[in-house]
C-alpha cells in the first residue's frame, strides 16, 4: 500500500476516533500529527511509514489520550460492520425462533389433555385425537341366597367389591370392547358371571352377606371393602387391596409368588369368614 494512503487512512481513523471533540479541534490535532509524521520522514527518509505510525501508537490510542487529557471519556473502537451484522443476524434469528415457538404453544395449548373418564387423549389442542374406543356399560343382578357362591371370571381390569344391602348380587361394568357379550348363568352352587373377552374392564360388584365370592383373572386390581362374605381370589398379576370390616373376623390364607403381603390378623373362630388370595406377582395390601 503506498505510503500516502497508509498515512491518510491513519489520519482518517484518528479523526473519527476524536469525534467527541469539536470539528476545529479535530482538524488541528490531525494536522499536527500529520506534521509530526512528515517531519519524521524528512529526518529519516528511508524509515518505513509503518514504523513511524507504530511509534505514534494506534489512532484510537492516540485519540483516547487526547480525550483523557481533556477529561472526556475514551471512545471504544467501533465494531467491524461484518461483526455488527453477524450479531444482529444472530439476535434476530433467536428472537424469531422464540416468537415462533411462543405462537405454536399458544395456538396448540393445552399440548396434551387426558380425559380419564372417557379414556380420550387430545394432543396439540385437538390436532391429534386418540380415543380408546367407546365404553360399553354392562349391568345386572341376581338373587343369591346365603351360603351360595358367585364366580366372576375376567381377563384384565379393575374390580371393586362391596357388601350388598340385599340378598342380591349386582354387577355394573364398563369396558372398552365394542362387543358386549357376557354370560351370567345360574349354577348348582349359585351364579357364574363370565367377563372374559372384555378389554379394560371396570367393575363394581355388590355381594350379599354370608355368601361366597370367587374371583379369577389374569391381570388386574381388586379392591375388597369391608366384606361380609367369604372370598377366594386367584390373580396372575396385580394388586389386591383389602379393607377388613371391624365387626367381622377373617381367616386368611394369602400367598404371593413374587411380591409382598402386608400383615393381617387371622382368626380361628368358627364364624370367621374365609379370605383366600393367590397372587402370582404383585402385592396384597391391608388398607384402612
Amino acid at each position: 500500500m503506498p505510503t500516502d494512503v497508509k498515512l491518510e487512512n491513519y489520519l482518517s481513523d484518528l479523526e473519527r476516533a476524536l469525534r467527541p471533540l469539536p470539528v476545529s479541534d479535530r482538524a488541528e490535532i490531525v494536522t499536527e500529527i500529520k506534521s509530526h509524521v512528515l517531519s519524521a520522514l524528512e529526518r529519516e527518509p528511508n524509515q518505513p511509514m509503518d514504523d513511524v505510525l507504530a511509534a505514534l501508537g494506534s489512532a484510537e490510542t492516540v485519540a483516547n489520550r487526547y480525550l483523557l487529557e481533556r477529561g472526556a471519556r475514551p471512545v471504544k473502537p467501533p465494531l467491524s460492520p461484518i461483526i455488527k451484522w453477524l450479531v444482529f443476524g444472530f439476535v434476530a434469528t433467536v428472537a424469531m425462533c422464540l416468537l415462533f415457538v411462543g405462537m405454536l404453544i399458544w395456538k396448540f395449548s393445552p399440548l396434551v389433555k387426558l380425559d380419564e373418564g372417557s379414556g380420550q387423549v387430545t394432543i396439540l389442542n385437538g390436532a391429534i385425537h386418540l380415543e380408546k374406543g367407546k365404553r360399553q356399560e354392562l349391568s345386572g343382578d341376581r338373587e343369591l341366597a346365603e351360603g351360595k357362591r358367585v364366580q366372576v371370571d375376567f381377563e384384565n381390569g379393575r374390580v371393586e367389591v362391596r357388601t350388598a344391602k340385599e340378598m342380591k348380587f349386582t354387577w355394573r361394568c364398563r369396558t372398552s370392547s365394542t362387543s358386549s357379550k357376557t354370560e351370567s348363568s345360574a349354577t348348582a352352587e349359585g351364579l357364574l358371571l363370565d367377563l372374559r373377552g372384555l378389554d379394560d374392564l371396570r367393575c363394581e360388584l355388590s355381594v350379599p352377606r354370608r355368601t361366597q365370592l370367587r374371583l379369577a383373572g389374569g391381570n388386574g386390581k381388586i379392591d375388597l371393602e369391608r366384606p361380609k362374605f367369604g372370598i377366594e381370589v386367584n390373580l396372575s398379576n396385580g394388586k389386591v387391596d383389602l379393607v377388613p370390616d371391624e365387626g367381622e373376623k377373617y381367616r386368611y390364607a394369602l400367598s404371593v409368588g413374587n411380591g409382598k403381603i402386608d400383615e393381617f390378623s387371622s382368626s380361628d373362630a368358627p364364624d370367621a369368614l374365609s379370605v383366600k388370595v393367590q397372587l402370582g406377582n404383585g402385592k396384597i395390601s391391608h388398607s384402612e
Binding site: E32, H36, A55, L56, Y66, E69
Partner: peptide
C-alpha cells in the same frame, strides 16, 4: 517521551 503521549499533553497545556 512517546509521541502519542507528548502531543496530547501539549494540547492540554495549551488549553
Amino acid at each position: 517521551v512517546k509521541e502519542g503521549t507528548l502531543y496530547p499533553l501539549l494540547n492540554r497545556m495549551t488549553s
